[in-house]
């Protein structure tokens, strides 16, 4: 059973004259234990797609299923990590991490132990009582991550989580994400990462959905079968980067072309 099924999703926004189509006929599945990245040129609606999946926004056409039931409102079995961290400046680190648990109506003592656990897991010990403005970007995003993981989501959604950070900090957090992902004791069952950084996607994900320029469609569903830790210097890594890059540049230049998901994905799948 697929964890998430995205079936023929269209999205368009009302504009002054008619409407603007953001994406057309997007279909793919997310399986349990998938670390899936969504890449594409800027403005192709990657982030919008992530929001459609959680039910923050509704598709204009098509449907999205989570564990075989349609997503009609915000799905709390998923949790989002934001590009700009989206921490509440008036709440301490602990209170920010407790945010989702409070909304779920957990009893206070359970919230406390859960918060302690995820603060510890993400390396935030020592900053429990700090306010977000006292933290560096790297520490802020750890809070964002701890807040999302604390609700023990089935799916972790990450919307460009490292693009507001300096390169070294981003490198650091990418590695920590993989460390947490490897831990079978920790949620989630699957990760959906939206990124404009192809190398980042290849470094982290097992599968990459490549979207075209607006109105976007799925150009390819690329399986990344490089051994971990992935060596950015290796020929295989280079080749894969090159392939995704040319998919985006070529696919984007012909936006009227029909979805080419199957054809493009076939050689890489190798299964």
């Amino acid at each position: 059973m697929a964890l998430i099924r995205i079936e023929h999703v269209d999205k368009s926004f009302a504009a002054r004259h008619g409407s603007i189509s953001i994406m057309q006929d997007i279909s793919f599945d997310v399986a349990d234990s998938d670390f899936l990245a969504i890449v594409g040129p800027s403005g192709c609606g990657k982030s919008t797609l992530l929001r459609l999946i959680q039910g923050l926004d509704k598709p204009t056409g098509g449907q999205i299923f989570f564990r075989d039931s349609p997503v009609t409102s915000v799905c709390t079995k998923m949790a989002m990590v934001f590009q700009s961290f989206a921490l509440f400046p008036w709440l301490t680190v602990s209170q920010n991490v407790a945010f989702g648990l409070e909304a779920l109506g957990w009893p206070p003592d359970r919230i406390r132990s859960q918060v302690d656990r995820y603060i510890s897991v993400t390396g935030l010990d020592g900053f429990q009582e700090a306010f977000p403005r006292e933290l560096s970007g790297g520490m802020r995003q750890r809070v964002g991550l701890a807040r999302a993981l604390a609700v023990e989501p089935s799916v972790l959604l990450m919307d460009e989580p490292f693009s507001a950070l300096d390169p070294l900090t981003a490198e650091s957090l990418r590695e920590e994400i993989l460390q947490l992902w490897r831990d079978p004791e920790l949620p989630p069952d699957a990760v959906l990462l939206v990124s404009h950084n192809i190398e980042e996607a290849i470094q982290l994900a097992d599968r990459i959905i490549v979207l075209s320029r607006r109105p976007s469609h799925v150009l390819a569903d690329v399986h990344v079968d490089l051994p971990r830790p992935r060596d950015r210097k290796s020929q295989a890594f280079y080749d894969l980067t090159d392939r995704v890059y040319s998919l985006i540049t070529e696919g984007g230049s012909a936006p009227t072309a029909p979805p080419a998901a199957n054809g493009a994905a076939a050689p890489q799948k190798a299964l």
Partner: peptide, 20 residues
């Protein structure tokens, strides 16, 4: 994104008012 963050956790009513 703060509104969205509250929304992703389905914060509603009194809690939404008090916390956000």
């Amino acid at each position: 994104e703060l509104k969205e963050a509250a929304e992703t956790f389905r914060l509603r009513g009194v809690l939404l008012f008090r916390r956000v």
